[in-house]
């Protein structure tokens, strides 16, 4: 018999890993909102940022710098790498493909994925590198309430905290700053935005940069959880159902979608998986997304899709 305590533990664990999915999904949403590009390369960007960070960190520590200096320089280095990446992608791929249809752009981001994966591993190495930025030990909560208490990983709490800050920051950026307003204008209508003097290629560079920095943040948390390694790119695929559930154009949607997917798949795995063979975590999120699509094609928070002839 499964008690309330265990249920809560599974639920909290699921919610927390859902926050991590949201971190990846956020990058998708940013780019989709501003340029209509379905960015498959987000997972590869997380890998690139993570590898840049962890390798420079290891190097600086090996040279004898104190840890906090190493962390600051490592993060700055990774950020610079993401700036260069964003600039190159906008210049070489997305810029020339302006006005192509969504499928072509989507395929081009898969091409970018190959380039980034190859380049990142060639420059920074292709092993699994452990990253220790956040504590990974556990708390025991409510020990007097439930037998055995509830296990909560500190890293998950950190992840939730960071995601919260990130969303707040992005919300302020979108609503309050001039660039943010320009971003929303471009998202609404490229041509109209251009005609009132918004430089589109600059805006797209900013968007890819923002997505790159979100990828860096995601890399710090995921890297601490799993180690920085190639399999981190598969996160991109896990973020897709999160997006669909939350809605492709909604930042809060990415968070809520992540929470639903995270909690849903953990609960399904623990309470349902034992009946039908286990491992249903693997596809549960996608089937959930499929169900949401059938009821609400635009996702929970997406803008209603209106079509005109």
């Amino acid at each position: 018999m499964i008690g309330l305590g265990q249920f809560l533990e599974v639920l909290i664990g699921g919610l927390m890993s859902g926050v991590l999915y949201s971190l990846v999904a956020l990058g998708f949403v940013l780019i989709f909102k501003a340029s209509g590009v379905f960015n498959f390369a987000q997972g590869a960007m997380v890998l690139l940022a993570g590898l840049a960070l962890v390798r420079s960190l290891d190097l600086l520590v090996a040279w004898g710098f104190p840890l906090w200096v190493a962390i600051i320089f490592g993060i700055s280095f990774a950020a610079v790498i993401m700036v260069i990446t964003a600039w190159l992608i906008e210049r070489l791929v997305i810029g020339p493909l302006v006005n192509q249809d969504g499928l072509t752009l989507f395929m081009s981001t898969i091409g970018v994925t190959f380039i980034l994966e190859g380049a990142a591993q060639m420059i920074f190495g292709s092993d699994a590198y452990p990253l220790r930025l956040f504590p990974t030990d556990v708390w025991l909560l409510f020990e007097d309430l439930f037998p055995g208490g509830i296990l909560v990983n500190k890293l998950d709490v950190w992840g939730g905290f960071i995601a919260g800050i990130l969303v707040a920051g992005l919300a302020i950026f979108f609503e309050r700053t001039k660039t943010g307003r320009a971003l929303r204008a471009v998202a609404d209508d490229h041509l109209a935005a251009q005609s009132v003097g918004i430089p589109i290629s600059w805006i797209w560079f900013v968007v890819w940069l923002a997505a790159g920095l979100v990828a860096l943040v995601a890399a710090t948390v995921w890297g601490t959880k799993l180690g920085v390694q190639f399999s981190i790119t598969f996160l991109a695929l896990k973020a897709l159902p999160v997006l669909i559930i939350g809605g492709l154009t909604s930042v809060p949607g990415a968070i809520v979608g992540g929470l639903i997917v995270g909690a849903g798949e953990k609960i399904a795995e623990v309470f349902l998986g034992s009946y039908i063979g286990g491992g249903i975590e693997y596809w549960f999120a996608y089937v959930l997304a499929l169900a949401v699509l059938l009821v609400r094609p635009q996702g929970l928070f997406g803008e209603r899709i209106i079509e005109r002839i």
Binding site: V93, M107, G111, V112, T113, F114, I115, E117, G118
Partner: peptide, 10 residues
Amino acid sequence: EFIIFGSLIC
């Protein structure tokens, strides 16, 4: 191979 393949596709 990854890099060249991706670049060619783009």
